[in-house]
């Protein structure tokens, strides 16, 4: 049974008199000990899903789902207290933009120390507890690869480079020893060496502590090397989901194929100086979403039936939503 199970998650925003479906029947599940990649272009709703899971969406947006459960408990109907408890101990989130996700008026050390759950802190007197908190903070910071803890723990967010900020976000997420780590584009803007470090850290945590990771990114190379399974998102709809190796070898949805083709590292046969294959056009804005399959206007295989939203179909554990999938032509 998956730990995090989301079925038909729909997010509606009121804009003037029309309501916009920013997320339309998104399905996503993360099993225990699995690294699940969530892939999609910018603006496809990846970060919205992350916010929806951690309950940080503005209350005027209407969130509905057939199922949104954490270890069998419904996340949508549980009390605020329970939800907070889940977020504090079991799910941890690394947000996209470290500089704005850190409180500008508090030092990094203070923010890291406040994320340590009280149960981890030993000592009966407050100074002992403060000392132990500090010790935990320093060891966590070392774990994510920040060497100069003295300098950075007393620094303010505007004083640090972006990659240190990102590592701090990861440290803050890991300090509560969660079961699921949601990493929203954690390696953005990092140098390749630090990126490798972070990805290795994730893989190691996944193997040694069996930490499940929901890895949100558009860095296909990183995803392909570490993720076990993948969910592809386009304009707020899930287009394809399944095991990484199946999708890589035989993508069923035209969008997934285009996405994989656009990454040169997956194309060994690509001749030098040739054009990278891309889909024409760009992702539609939320105000002008096409009806039916939202890829429709850009899809090379679109036909008349595509104005109806295709239902999710499933072959083993590989699911896709397309009327005319690839590799499935009837003889």
């Amino acid at each position: 049974m998956p730990m995090l199970d989301i079925k038909n998650l729909t997010l509606e925003m009121e804009s003037g008199d029309a309501s916009i479906k920013a997320l339309d029947k998104v399905n996503l599940s993360v099993s225990s000990g699995e690294i699940r990649a969530l892939v999609g272009e910018s603006g496809s709703g990846k970060s919205l899903i992350v916010s929806a899971i951690c309950g940080a969406l503005p209350s005027q947006w209407n969130l509905t789902a057939d199922r949104m459960s954490w270890n069998g408990e419904n996340l949508l109907s549980m009390s605020v207290q329970q939800r907070r408890e889940v977020m504090r101990r079991e799910i941890a989130v690394v947000f996209q933009n470290p500089q704005s996700s850190l409180d500008p008026s508090a030092t990094l050390g203070e923010q890291l120390e406040e994320s340590i759950p009280d149960e981890f802190v030993e000592g009966s007197w407050f100074w002992q507890r403060a000392q132990h908190r500090k010790k935990i903070a320093i060891s966590t910071v070392h774990k994510v690869g920040i060497k100069y803890h003295k300098h950075y723990l007393s620094a303010y967010p505007h004083q640090i480079p972006a990659d240190i900020g990102q590592k701090f976000m990861i440290a803050m997420a890991l300090v509560s020893q969660p079961k699921l780590l949601i990493a929203d584009d954690p390696t953005r803007g990092m140098e390749p060496t630090t990126k490798t470090q972070i990805l290795k850290l994730f893989t190691r945590l996944n193997q040694t502590r069996s930490l499940s990771i929901l890895f949100v990114s558009h860095d296909l190379l990183a995803i392909a090397s570490m993720a076990h399974s993948m969910t592809v998102l386009y304009a707020g709809q899930t287009v394809e989901a399944g095991k990484m190796k199946h999708i890589k070898k035989r993508p069923l949805h035209p969008y997934t194929k285009a996405l994989l083709d656009s990454a040169p590292s997956f194309r060994k046969d690509l001749p030098p100086k040739s054009h990278l294959p891309t889909l024409g056009g760009s992702i539609p804005t939320l105000q002008h979403l096409p009806i039916g399959c939202r890829l429709g206007p850009r899809c090379p295989r679109a036909q008349r039936a595509c104005v109806q939203t295709p239902a999710m179909r499933k072959i083993h554990d590989h699911s896709y939503s397309c009327h005319y999938p690839l590799h499935m032509e009837k003889p």
């Binding site: 951690c54 406040e114 976000m169």
Partner: peptide
Amino acid sequence: KHRPYIAAAVSRGLS
């Protein structure tokens, strides 16, 4: 209240 760091703090499960 609408800054991302408040959302981040909520997601860390602070009261």
